[in-house]
Amino acid sequence: MKHARLATEDSPWVKALILTAVLGFLALILVLPLVAIFVEALRKGLAAALAAIGDADAIAAIKLTLVTAAIAVPFNAAFGICAAWAIAKHQFRFKSVLITLIDLPFSVSPVVAGLIYVLVFGLQGWFGQWLLDHDIKIIFATPGIVLATLFVTFPFVARELIPLMQEQGVDEEEAAVSLGASGLRTFWSVTAPNIRWGLLYGVLLCNARAMGEFGAVSVVSGHIRGLTNTMPLHVEILYNEYNFVGAFAVAAVLCLLAVVTLAVKTALELAQPQARPVRH
């Protein structure tokens, strides 16, 4: 028996056409380049690709990228929760200013973001002399890279949580407080579980950007091999030196890191099925 067609359902032809268009577009824009990365990485065999990844400079770049993400992501997650909490659950003056500020990194070019830090902390910058006198290196060193990454990635968690928290309102928190729960208990027992999927998604986006950021990091890094090169920068250097296998091999590692984060997210979701929203 044919199932009844819904009023909003299009004819099979339209459905097929739209689906083909979407899949074709995805294949062209997404799948093909991804495949190309792995094909190019393995062009001279697995051994050559592994050798490129095992290179001391490449390992240093991978380490630096992971360290940067490991600092930037928790920091921005904490900041994002605080900002979203303040904006969604409280009324105060200049709220819209705060929201605009949070969006700033999205609208400012990453290169500009990098330059800001060079201006402030660079040798010719405001604090340059002071930093030099105290032997503190920020620009062309790990702290600068972390700062630039923090700047570029800080809206992700807050942006994900603000609409979610606003939609949930304060009723549940008020209920918890009226039942005698402390502020901290209310946050852990009521707020945190309600925002965990939004938070996870925000953290994943934040992490992806933290590991992949090129522009801002490029300005403050100084491209010192084995010291201040992150993975994206290392990929560029290898590519410019016509070391295509090396470039694509490191790029493949970046891709795999992304796949791992997605897999972690899926696994977490499957582990707690009741937490997924049920629609009536």
Binding site: D171, E172, E174, A175, A176, V177, S178, L179, G180, A181, S182, S189, V190, P193
Partner: peptide
Amino acid sequence: AAQRGVGFVFQQYALF
């Protein structure tokens, strides 16, 4: 509210 020992019921239930 936590100190008062009240029970509050909301229009939209506000269940956890």
